[in-house]
Amino acid sequence: MKRIIVTGASSGIGRATAELFAENGWRVGLIARRADALAEIAARHPNAVPLPADVTDPAAMARAFDAFGPLDVLFNNAGIFGQAGSIDEIPLEDWQQVVGVNLHGMFIAARLAFGAMRAQGGGRIINNGSLAAHVPRPGSVSYTTTKHAITGLTRSLSLDGRPYNIACGQIDIGNAETDMIAMLRKGEPQMETMDVAHAAASVLHMAGLPLDANVQFMTVMATRMPFIGRG
């Protein structure tokens, strides 16, 4: 049985992905702060293992990874949007929170996975970027900055992982129907979206490749989103 850890597994893209992997016979480690939501997922999927932890807490994350044991794939997914506005309107505390989750938290998870995979002879890390890793939407300075940084993390892990049979790729997902997008839609009622299941299926494809093949970067989005030509 293949094994994956999914961060941010309690809702949105993380939850849809975790459930799809469990349905496809993977053993799935569920990391998020909301223990009740993780228990709910695990109750429906015998292969799912709740691992409540805050991705910004290195000790809690280390305990979660140790409890899960060997893993084939990390889906490094946990992230928050933060307050919308121009840079002079964003409280420093909000900026620090977004950086803490979206960058520091993803670094912690990747570090733990990389160490485990290096010791066991290989594995795969899939980072959740965003279209914001390429172009911003208005008022998203904190989120966009962290997602650009994730592209650098992906490239560095890909390079440093080569000697150890560790593949790293990034999935940049457009507007998938999640609670985060529902919040953003309030200011953009005509927003083009896609079913979150398409994002989950794309991660499953990336994770299912043999380690001698890698999707370095994948963009999956609603066809009519104004991404190409936007800016």
Rank of each mutant, 00 (worst) to 15 (best):
I4E: 00
G8L: 00
G8V: 00
A9G: 04
S10E: 05
I13Y: 02
A18E: 11
E19H: 05
L20K: 11
F21I: 05
F21H: 06
F21E: 01
G25L: 06
R27C: 01
V28W: 07
G29K: 04
I31T: 05
D36N: 12
A37Q: 13
L38I: 03
L38P: 00
A39C: 03
E40G: 06
E40A: 15
E40W: 01
A42S: 01
H45Q: 02
P46T: 12
P50Y: 01
P50D: 00
L51K: 06
L51R: 09
D57R: 01
D57P: 04
P58Y: 05
A62T: 08
L71H: 04
D72Y: 04
V73L: 10
F75I: 00
F75G: 00
N77Q: 04
A78E: 12
I80W: 08
I80L: 13
F81M: 09
F81S: 15
G82M: 09
G82W: 10
A84M: 14
G85Q: 08
G85V: 08
S86R: 15
I87Q: 05
P91Y: 06
P91T: 13
E93K: 13
D94I: 07
W95N: 12
V98R: 04
G100D: 08
L103H: 07
L103F: 14
L103E: 03
G105A: 11
A109S: 15
A109G: 15
A110L: 03
A110F: 04
M117P: 09
R118H: 06
A119F: 00
Q120M: 05
G123A: 07
R124M: 02
I125Q: 01
I126T: 10
G129R: 02
G129W: 02
A133R: 07
V135G: 03
P136D: 06
T145C: 13
T146L: 01
K147I: 04
A149S: 12
I150E: 10
L153C: 09
T154P: 08
L157A: 11
L157C: 03
L159R: 13
L159T: 12
L159K: 12
I166F: 08
A167D: 13
C168R: 08
C168E: 08
C168M: 09
D172T: 01
D179M: 01
M180F: 00
M180W: 02
A182V: 03
M183D: 15
M183I: 13
R185C: 04
G187Y: 01
E188K: 14
T193K: 03
T193S: 13
M194L: 11
D195Q: 13
D195P: 10
V196S: 04
A197R: 15
H198L: 11
A199Q: 08
A200D: 03
V203L: 05
L204V: 01
L204I: 01
M206R: 05
P210M: 13
D212A: 02
V215M: 09
F217I: 10
V220F: 07
T223Q: 12
T223M: 11
R224S: 10
M225V: 05
F227E: 09
I228K: 13
I228D: 12
